[in-house]
C-alpha cells in the first residue's frame, strides 16, 4: 500500500487553526485554508461563510496535481508557489512540506508582497506542526491495537449507513 492515510487530532488542529487564523490577520487576507494533496479540506479561516470549501479543496488539489505534472515534464521537482490574479480577488497557493497546500485569498486590502512574506514565515511553522502530526500518527498506528475507533466497526454499522 501507499502508506497510511492522513490523520488529524484535536491538539494539532487547534495549533494549525491558530496559525492560519493569525495569517488571515497578518496578511490582511479574506480567507486562508489548508488542503491535503488529495483534496481534503484540513482547516479554513476568515470569511468562509459563503464559500463552498469542499469544492475549493478539490479544485485546489487538482490544480496542484496538474501543475506538479507540468513541472515533472519540464524536469522541475515541483512549482512550490502558484499565483492567480483576478479582477477582485487573488489566489496565492503554496506547498507546505510536500504534503499540504496553503491557499490565501486576498483582495486590494492586501498585496502580493505582503502575502508572500507572511506565508513564508507561517509555512515553516505549519511544516513543523505537520511533521509532529505525522510522527504522532505513525506512533499510534504502530502502537497497541484497538486504539483506532474503526477497529470495532461491524458489518451492521456499515449497512446502516446505506439504509434510506
Amino acid at each position: 500500500m501507499a502508506g497510511p492515510g492522513m490523520v488529524m487530532y484535536e491538539e494539532e488542529f487547534h495549533k494549525i487553526s491558530a496559525v492560519i487564523d493569525k495569517l488571515v490577520k497578518d496578511a490582511n487576507a479574506k480567507v486562508v485554508f489548508l488542503v491535503d494533496k488529495n483534496g481534503q479540506m484540513i482547516a479554513a479561516c476568515g470569511e468562509v461563510e459563503n464559500l463552498d470549501t469542499t469544492s475549493l479543496a478539490s479544485l485546489t488539489a487538482g490544480n496542484i496535481a496538474a501543475t506538479g505534472g507540468l513541472a515533472k515534464l519540464l524536469g522541475e521537482k515541483e512549482f512550490s508557489i502558484l499565483f492567480h490574479e483576478g479582477e477582485r480577488d487573488n489566489l496565492h497557493i503554496s506547498l507546505i512540506g510536500q504534503r499540504v497546500i496553503l491557499v490565501v485569498i486576498f483582495d486590494d486590502r492586501s498585496s502580493l508582497g505582503l502575502v508572500r512574506l507572511r506565508v513564508k514565515k507561517c509555512g515553516e511553522e505549519l511544516a513543523g506542526i505537520f511533521d509532529q502530526l505525522m510522527k504522532k500518527a505513525e506512533a499510534e498506528a504502530a502502537g497497541v491495537g484497538g486504539v483506532s475507533p474503526f477497529a470495532e466497526i461491524t458489518d451492521e454499522d456499515i449497512d446502516n449507513l446505506f439504509r434510506e
Partner: peptide, 12 residues
C-alpha cells in the same frame, strides 16, 4: 488515502 479527522470527527 483516507483522512481521519479526530477533531471534526469525520472520515473522508
Amino acid at each position: 488515502m483516507s483522512f481521519i479527522n479526530y477533531s471534526s470527527r469525520e472520515i473522508n
